[in-house]
Design a protein around this nucleic acid. Structure first.
Lengths: 107, 107
DNA sequence: TGACGATATTACGATATACTCATAAACAAG
DNA sequence: CTTGTTTATGAGTATATCGTAATATCGTCA
C-alpha cells in the first residue's frame, strides 16, 4: 500500500497540488463540473479577467487536471477525469468535519 | 453529492491544498506515516533546517493536516487522520496513470 | 537561579506567483 | 485581404513564499 515516495515524485505531486491551491482555479473546475466549456463561457461564469483565466487554464492543463480541444477559434476545456472532483470533495469533507468538531466544542 | 461551493469555501479548500503543494511538507507527512514524531526526529529524517521545518509544521498544523501535543520540552506531531494520506495517494495515482499513458504512446 | 536542549519566531534576501494592460496569433466572415 | 472574435503571451508591478541566520521562549535539571 503505502510504499515510500521518491523526492522527485514528491516534487511532481506538490506541483499538482499547487495547481489546486488557488481559489480562482478551483472556481474554474467547479464551472467545468457541468461539462465542457469555452474560455469565454468560463469568463462569464467566474468573472475572471481574460488574460488571468487563460493563464490559470494553462496551469490546470499543465497539471493534467483539465483537457482541451480546439473548435474553430475557441478552445473547449473539460475536467480530465472524475478523480479531480474527488480530490476536491475529499478536502471539502475534511473541512466539514473540522467545522462540526468546532461546533461541538461550543455546544 | 456535488453541491455548489461558496467562494469562501473555495478559499479554505485552496488554503489546504496550498499546504500540500510543497515537497518539503509532503516529505514531512511521509515521515509521519510511521507514527508520531518529534521535531528533532523530523529534522533528521528529512534533512530540513530547524527553522524551516518548524515553519512548515506550523503550516501543516494550521491547515489541520497534522495534530500535535507537547511532551516535556519537545513537540510531537502526527497525521490528523488517514484522509491526509488518501489525498496524496489519489494524486499519486493520477501521476502513475499519466505516466502509463505516456509510455503507451511511445510503445 | 543558571545553563542546556528543544521549538518557535523574527528579520531578511532571493525567488516565484497573481493580476492587469497591451499585443500577438489563429480563425471566420465578408 | 480586412475586420472582428477568441485565445494566448509578454512585460510590469505588487505580493507571497522559501530558506537561513539570529534570537526568543519554554521546559528540565543541577
Amino acid at each position: 500500500m503505502g510504499r515510500a515516495l521518491s523526492p522527485e515524485q514528491l516534487g511532481h505531486i506538490a506541483e499538482r497540488f499547487k495547481a489546486l491551491s488557488e481559489p480562482s482555479r478551483l472556481e474554474i473546475l467547479q464551472a467545468l463540473r457541468q461539462g465542457e466549456r469555452s474560455v469565454t463561457e468560463i469568463l462569464s461564469e467566474t468573472g475572471l479577467g481574460q488574460a488571468n483565466a487563460s493563464r490559470h487554464l494553462q496551469v490546470l492543463f499543465g497539471a493534467g487536471l483539465v483537457e482541451r480541444r480546439k473548435e474553430g477559434p475557441s478552445t473547449l476545456y473539460r475536467l480530465a477525469d472524475p478523480d479531480v472532483l474527488k480530490l476536491c470533495e475529499l478536502m471539502c469533507g475534511r473541512l466539514e468535519r473540522e467545522a462540526a468538531a468546532r461546533k461541538k466544542l461550543f455546544a
